[in-house]
């Protein structure tokens, strides 16, 4: 989480580079401006304002884009929310449905909408399919593939190996806070990943 503003974690080590340039991620608004978006693992605690509706959640991270000098343009906001609702196929009565009444998969899509509306270059997805039914999982993978095809960088964090093997072009294996292996899509398999983890364990 500390890639994205330093509000989480106290000791900050390391830097974020994009296109070979150092990116200022000292605060969350700066990280967003730099084109980073972080879809958090815990969507209920960290992703959504549950008692707000889909529309309000969708535009929250980029409110200024639907407002001029601090005044929200209702029609523009409605249009943005309606667009994302149909694009990501969020199942709801309307964009005015409260996020709390949505299923896990649809909640996740609302969080995705929110971050897509910030037009990020790099999208960090932290366990994007946790607690979601199979159908919605498939839809989320489709969305991820679409985004990648559109040229967005996607960094996916997951503890579900089949998911990683199915979606990623490159996999970094981490163990106890360190990167222990880098595998290309061709090299990556359940065995090779497990082997990398075991090997790193032996060294200690």
């Amino acid at each position: 989480m500390s890639v994205f503003g330093k509000s989480w974690g106290h000791k900050i080590t390391g830097e974020v580079h994009m296109h070979g340039k150092l990116v200022d991620v000292s605060t969350i608004p700066r990280a967003i401006d730099a084109g980073l978006a972080y879809v958090t693992e815990d969507r209920k605690q960290l992703g959504l304002v549950l008692n707000n509706n889909i529309m309000h959640n969708t535009t929250l991270a980029n409110l200024n884009a639907v407002a001029s000098s601090g005044v929200i343009n209702d029609h523009m906001e409605r249009k943005v929310a309606t667009d994302y609702r149909s694009k990501l196929r969020i199942r709801s009565h309307s964009i005015y449905q409260e996020a709390v009444n949505l299923s896990g998969g649809n909640q996740q899509k609302v969080v995705l909408s929110k971050w897509l509306f910030t037009t990020p270059e790099v999208l960090i997805l932290d366990e994007p399919t946790r607690g979601i039914d199979v159908g919605a999982k498939y839809e989320i993978y489709t969305i991820i593939n679409q985004l990648a095809a559109e040229g967005k960088g996607i960094l996916m964090i997951s503890s579900e190996m089949p998911e990683l093997l199915g979606t990623c072009d490159r996999i970094y294996v981490m163990n106890e806070g360190r990167i222990v292996a880098e595998l290309s899509k061709a090299e990556a398999s359940q065995e090779s990943i497990m082997r990398a983890i075991m090997r790193s364990g032996e060294k200690h």
Partner: peptide, 25 residues
């Protein structure tokens, strides 16, 4: 009802952590 400040206050009251992570000061 109509301003970004108002919207942000409601979001913050609804879920402070999520609001903060959405770039709200």
């Amino acid at each position: 009802t109509r301003s970004t400040i108002g919207r942000r206050i409601y979001a913050m009251g609804g879920n402070e952590k999520a609001a903060k992570l959405s770039g709200i000061n």
